[in-house]
Each structure stands twice: as structure tokens, then as C-alpha cells.
Design a protein around this nucleic acid. Structure first.
Length: 708
DNA sequence: GGCTATGCTTTTTTT
DNA sequence: AAGCATAGCC
């Protein structure tokens, strides 16, 4: 189609989706056919492009049911739906917009039987994964000091994300640790299969397998989803990429949008190569760059550009501000984290008093979850309302986890993790010894723990009382299941809690009426959740409810507790995609940002992108702070300003500055034989700094000993 | 079996 | 500093 005919059409239709777009954005929207990579820098109107593009596709006659848009978070999916609806109205209902995981679950529920999956599989969360790994390690008689279970799990997950197999890992093992991981992985897999459970990684992997091995499903999907959009493509991992590739293989109408400079989920398997190499993976791909930033003032963008320039693996681009001049970026050194919090809170009060903004215009961003503590304390002391995003989620609360476990056991009797959680909740006389024996039996028979319990008479050392208690528990569940067959979800959930007498558990655990009430409120909140789900869902089911819980539990509780006017506290990861007129980026220190651990794993470039994400959240004012001394694991330790601070100002660090690398114990966690892949141990941007650090030590000007 | 006290480790980020 | 596991006691 020629541009003129397009223009004519727009004029003819009288309204124009495109008129609000700049030329690059317009090109991204109008290129409907073939692979398209949209490199959208921070604040360049990425979401606007995606939503307009969807609306435009529909305007051009594409059926909404033929459009698939995938995102990484439910929040992003929700926002996308909203905005498309605002542009295109009711027809958006037939669109498929969701996360990769949600899309996968849907497909697996519908067609998973072809893979031998049970229709009632449950999804296990990361804490279930961890207990599975722990129990496997116990089975294998591996002491937890050999290798931390969470480290084992991380390796397994990473390997899964690379679509490797235990066998491959064993073959290529370069250390006994690799072999250990391979063994645990094998058993872990059996463990989950027995429980008819899939973990997050499996959802994607099984979907890939489904699409690859079952031509009927594959062809159906290819026909159904003729236009594919992927948001935040820089966060795509290998299985996700394979899903996209399978779906788009024939029509090749795949538009991916993202910013390689904002790839911050590498630790979770996201592969920046996917966005860097899109034009190789999809030959003939068109590339559109969005570089006009509508969010931040020039000084803020200059700071961002100055930092990110030090990364080597990236698509070259630089943001230009459409906003123009503004206040310079501020940088402050404070004595310690308490003073830092006082300073920031004082600054917030000042700017509100001066009328420069409201509390909801302000965000405090930090690297780790321990940092918000002093800020919370200070904000409370001053009576300033705030919202802490992330942190301990509602879904991490003990009561909520208990309730979910009851539901999971009711939905999938083989779900071992859930079963073990609630078999003795409230205490019904089934203790550790009994469970150990049952578990041992389950392992030797290759069945799930609940099934093993059903055959408890065969197990030596399991008391009559325990068997009776188990049968009583099962009986209660069964009774509720029958009684409730006709009831709605909320009533069933209520009945279930009644039947297992959960209230007495809460009563038993919390003597204080205040806390007891607060605890029980969480349980009631779950009932609200169920009610809400029932209302929203066209065909509410227990499994559907559990799915939603599993897939959205990482999300913040949305506007539920509508904080109104409040300061936002959150991690840099949580801040991606958001913007605030006033941003405080705190804890700009070597070891924190870049985080020591990330640097040790050669992930400094990702840390730099994290800093970049933080800086680019700011619209009008950005304040960075760092601290001379900070409490760590209960001890006070000296801190250095972050290398990113120097990069940002184009300065070299002073002679007594020490990079984190120099403070890391050598050869700690990884294979000591194999040096770190590539030269990534010395990050591109930190090269100067690192050399300097080393030289100053070599020349005898040893770094000042950490005081105190 | 269940509860409490003591000692020890630590997750950086999350679908 | 705090949560978690283990040990030891009722």
C-alpha cells in the first residue's frame, strides 16, 4: 500500500489513529506484514505504539481473534487491554492479550492431554520448587552445605530456560557440582510429575513441546494467531522465543517491541541476544528505532545516555528529549542509610511544600529489598503515607499460602507440596517422623506422598492414630467436595475452611486478638478474591481460580487498597515501565548497584542497565544518593560511590576508590577451573575503574582497610 | 508429637 | 537483623 492511499483512507475515515504519532512511531504501526523489530528507548511511546498498532490492525479489517499480544507481566497485559479498549472499543474482547505463562496454561489445559498431562495439573510456585529440591537433596543424601538448595534450583531453572536436559548437563559437566545438579534435576522432575505439577519453566517448555510435536495444535494456533506482538522483547527467554517462532513460522507477521538497554531479567533466563539478533532469527526483518523521549528533561537523559554508553552489547541509539531543559541531576553523599532516609524524606516534604509536586509524584527506587526499611521507618515517623511495591506480597502470607494449599489439595489430590503443607494444619497428630516414613515409602514406590499415605498400613512405623487422622482429613475434603458440588466457588472455599477447621489454627497460633484478627483478615481477603474471580470469569472453576492465583501472585495488589496520595517505594526491577515526576535513586554504591553478587557472576552490564532504568524513570527531577557506611548482615561496613556515578559525570574515580571486584573473595561459588566466560568479569564501563583499583593496590597504595 | 530456645546463614532482581 | 533449622524438652 502506498503512503498516499493510506493518507486518503485516513482522511476518508475522518478519525485517525495515526495522527497522534511521530514518523517513527507511525512507521512501526503501519508496517503490518512481516517481521518487525521496534527498538523503543525508555519513554519513547512504546505502549502507545503497541496499542495503536493493535487498533490499527483491527481497523484494517483483521479480526481481533487473529491477534495475539504477549507481555511479561499481568500488569502490562491489563494496561494494554485498557488502552486498546480506549482506542478501539468493545471488539477488544476477542483479542488474546496475556503473559506468555497465561497463554501457555490456556493452551496446555486445552490440549495438554496430547502430551500426557493431566487436565487437573497444578502450578507450583517457587517456594514449592525449593521444597521439592530440598527433599530431593535429602533423598540423595546431599548435605545442604555442599551446595545451597536455592543455588541448585537456580541452576536447574537456568538450564531449563536454555532448554537443556539433565543428560546433557551430565555429559558436559565440568565439576561435581554440575553432576549433583543433574542428579537433583532428574529426581526433581520425577517429583513434579508424581505430583502432577508443573513449575513456571515447565509451562513454557511444555508449550514448546506441544507446538513442536503436535501438528494439529500447531496448525490450529498458526491459523488462529495471524498477527503476533511481543512486548518487552528484551526479556524473552529461549522457550518463549521458540513459542513465538513456532507460531509465526508461516505468516511471519511478528512484531516485537523492546529496548535492549532495559534488559534486566538475565538472571531469570531472559536472553538479550534475542533482541540483539532478531534480524538474524527473522530474516528480512524491518527495524524501527524510537528515540524521541517524551518523558524526561535533557539533563536526565544526558545522565542516562552517559551511563548506558559504557555497555558494549547493545543496539546503538541515543535518546533525545522532547521535553527540553530542566533542573540538573542532583547527587548527594550521606553518612549512613538512616541519614539517607532522613535526607530523602526531608526533600520530599520540601518539594511538596514548595508545590512542586504531590506525594504520588514521588518514587524512591532502590536495588535490594532490605533498603526500604529505613525509608519506611522515617516516612512513618513523619506521618507520610507510602506504598511499598513488591516486598512481602499478600500471597506470601502464611494464611494465604495455607488457604491456597487447601484448595490445591482439593483440586489435585496428588499435589505433594500442598498436601505436605496442610496435612497437619491444624495439628492432627501427624508429625515429622510419620511424614519422613511416608515420604521414604513414597520415594521407594515412585508415588506421590498423598498416595503413599493412602497405603499407610503397608508402611512400618506409622501409627494407627496417624492413619486415622489422615483418613479423617481425607474424609473431610471428600465430604466438602460432594456437599459443594452445586455451590459456587466462594461457598465451596468457605465450606472447605470450615471442614478443616482452619479458624482454630489461626486461633491457636495467635493469642493476641489484634493480630489474630489481622491474620484472619487475610483469609477473608481470599474469599473476596474468590468472589471477585467468580464475577469476572465467564466460567469460574476451582482450577481456573488457582491458575489465576499462581500466575498473578507476583503482581502488586493493584489499586485494591487505593492508597491515593502516597510516596512510592520500590525496587528498580519493579519500576520498569513506570514514570514519576520526582525520582530518588538511593544506595548508589559499589556492591549495591552494581550489586557485588551480580558483578561476581559477570553481570555488570545488566547492573548498568538497571541503573539506566532507574534514571530514565524520572520526568522532571532526579536525585541520586549514596552513603559512606551501611549496615550489612548486622555489621557496619564502609561503602564507595558506585562506578555509575562516575560514568554519569564523565569523571574517573579518585585513587582511593576500590571497585567491588577487588573486595570479592576469589573463586567462591563457581567452577574454579573455568575462568569466567569472556572478559565479562571486567565490565566494559568499569575497565578504567578496575585497572585503577588494581594498580593502586599493586603500587602499594593499598585500599584503606575497612574501618570498624 | 508438639513446642520452644538456641545457633547459624543470608536472596539481587521475579513470571 | 531476622528467619530457619536443629536440638532438646515437655
Amino acid at each position: 500500500m502506498s503512503p498516499t492511499s493510506n493518507a486518503r483512507e485516513r482522511a476518508a475515515s475522518g478519525h485517525s489513529l495515526l495522527s497522534a504519532l511521530n514518523p517513527a512511531q507511525r512507521e512501526a504501526v503501519e508496517t503490518l506484514e512481516g517481521p518487525l523489530l521496534v527498538l523503543a528507548g525508555a519513554g519513547t511511546g512504546k505502549t502507545r505504539v503497541i496499542t495503536t498498532r493493535i487498533a490499527y490492525l483491527m481497523e484494517r479489517g483483521v479480526a481481533p481473534s487473529n491477534i495475539l499480544a504477549v507481555t511479561f507481566t499481568n500488569k502490562a497485559a491489563g494496561e494494554m487491554k485498557e488502552r486498546v479498549k480506549a482506542l478501539a472499543g468493545e471488539r477488544t474482547k476477542a483479542l488474546t492479550i496475556g503473559t506468555f505463562h497465561a497463554f501457555s496454561v490456556r493452551l496446555l489445559r486445552a490440549h495438554g492431554e496430547a502430551l500426557g498431562l493431566s487436565r487437573s495439573f497444578t502450578i507450583c510456585d517457587s517456594s514449592d520448587q525449593l521444597s521439592a529440591v530440598k527433599s530431593v537433596m535429602r533423598e540423595l543424601r546431599v548435605h545442604e552445605t555442599t551446595m545451597h538448595p536455592s543455588a541448585v534450583l537456580a541452576r536447574i531453572s537456568l538450564a531449563k530456560n536454555r532448554m537443556e536436559t539433565p543428560a546433557l548437563l551430565r555429559e558436559t559437566a565440568t565439576s561435581t557440582r554440575d553432576e549433583l545438579v543433574a542428579s537433583v534435576w532428574e529426581r526433581y522432575r520425577e517429583h513434579l510429575t508424581r505430583s502432577r505439577t508443573l513449575d513456571f519453566d515447565d509451562l513454557l517448555l511444555e508449550t514448546v513441546r506441544l507446538l513442536r510435536e503436535h501438528a494439529k495444535v500447531r496448525d490450529f494456533c498458526r491459523k488462529a494467531y495471524r498477527y503476533i506482538l511481543v512486548d518487552e522483547y528484551q526479556d524473552t527467554n529461549h522457550p518463549q522465543y521458540e513459542i513465538v517462532r513456532e507460531l509465526a513460522a508461516e505468516h511471519r507477521n511478528v512484531c516485537v517491541v523492546g529496548d535492549d538497554d532495559q534488559s534486566i531479567y538475565g538472571f531469570r533466563g531472559a536472553d538479550i541476544q534475542k533482541i540483539l539478533g532478531f534480524h538474524h532469527d527473522f530474516k528480512g526483518a524491518k527495524v524501527v528505532r524510537l528515540e524521541t523521549n517524551y518523558r524526561s528533561t535533557r539533563p536526565i537523559l544526558e545522565a542516562a545516555n552517559a551511563v548506558i554508553r559504557h555497555n558494549s552489547a547493545r543496539h546503538e541509539k541515543s535518546l533525545v528529549s522532547a521535553v527540553g531543559e530542566g533542573a540538573p541531576v542532583r547527587l548527594t553523599r550521606l553518612a549512613d542509610e538512616t541519614i539517607e532516609a532522613q535526607f530523602v524524606v526531608e526533600e520530599i516534604l520540601k518539594l511538596v511544600r514548595r508545590g512542586e509536586g504531590r506525594l504520588s509524584d514521588v518514587a524512591v527506587l532502590f536495588r535490594t529489598q532490605v533498603q526500604p526499611r529505613p525509608f519506611e521507618a522515617e516516612l512513618r515517623a513523619k506521618g507520610i503515607p507510602y506504598v511499598l511495591v513488591g516486598g512481602m506480597s499478600f500471597f506470601d502470607r502464611k494464611e494465604v499460602r495455607d488457604v491456597v494449599a487447601f484448595l490445591r489439595v482439593a483440586s489435585n489430590p496428588d499435589d505433594e507440596a500442598a498436601f505436605l503443607r496442610v496435612i497437619n494444619t491444624p495439628p492432627r497428630g501427624i508429625g515429622k517422623t510419620t511424614l519422613d516414613r511416608v515420604l521414604a515409602f513414597a520415594t521407594s514406590e515412585g508415588i506421590s506422598a498423598p498416595r503413599a499415605f493412602a497405603r499407610a498400613e503397608e508402611i512400618e512405623g506409622v501409627s494407627e492414630d496417624a492413619i486415622e487422622a489422615y483418613e479423617d482429613f481425607r474424609g473431610r475434603l471428600a465430604r466438602v467436595a460432594i456437599e459443594n458440588a452445586t455451590h459456587d466457588l466462594v461457598a465451596r472455599l468457605g465450606g472447605l475452611l470450615e471442614a478443616v477447621d482452619y479458624k482454630s489454627e489461626v486461633r491457636r497460633l495467635y493469642a493476641d486478638p489484634m493480630t489474630r484478627e489481622a491474620r484472619w483478615a487475610a483469609v477473608e481477603e481470599m474469599l473476596n478474591f474468590a468472589e471477585n474471580y467468580t464475577r469476572r470469569s465467564p466460567r469460574p472453576t476451582l482450577a481456573g481460580f488457582l491458575e489465576e492465583l499462581a500466575l498473578t501472585s507476583g503482581d502488586e495488589p493493584s489499586e485494591r487498597d487505593s492508597p491515593g496520595e502516597a510516596v512510592t517505594l520500590m525496587t528498580l526491577h519493579a519500576a520498569k515501565g513506570l514514570e514519576f515526576p520526582h525520582v530518588f535513586l538511593v544506595g548508589m554504591e559499589e556492591g549495591l548497584l552494581p550489586h557485588a553478587r551480580a558483578v561476581a557472576d559477570g553481570g555488570c552490564e545488566e547492573e548498568r542497565r538497571l541503573a539506566y532504568v532507574g534514571i530514565t524513570r524520572a520526568m522532571r527531577a532526579l536525585t541520586l544518593s549514596f552513603v559512606s557506611e551501611r549496615a550489612k548482615y548486622g555489621k557496619r561496613v564502609a561503602a564507595m560511590p558506585s562506578r555509575f556515578v562516575f560514568e554519569m559525570r564523565g569523571k574517573t574515580p579518585p585513587d582511593d576508590w576500590v571497585p567491588v571486584e577487588a573486595t570479592l573473595d576469589a573463586g567462591r561459588d563457581d567452577e574454579p577451573t573455568k575462568p569466567n566466560t569472556g572478559s565479562s568479569a571486567v565490565p566494559a564501563g568499569g575497565r578504567k575503574a578496575a585497572r585503577r583499583g588494581r594498580r593502586s593496590r599493586a603500587s602499594g597504595a593499598s585500599p584503606r582497610k575497612r574501618p570498624r
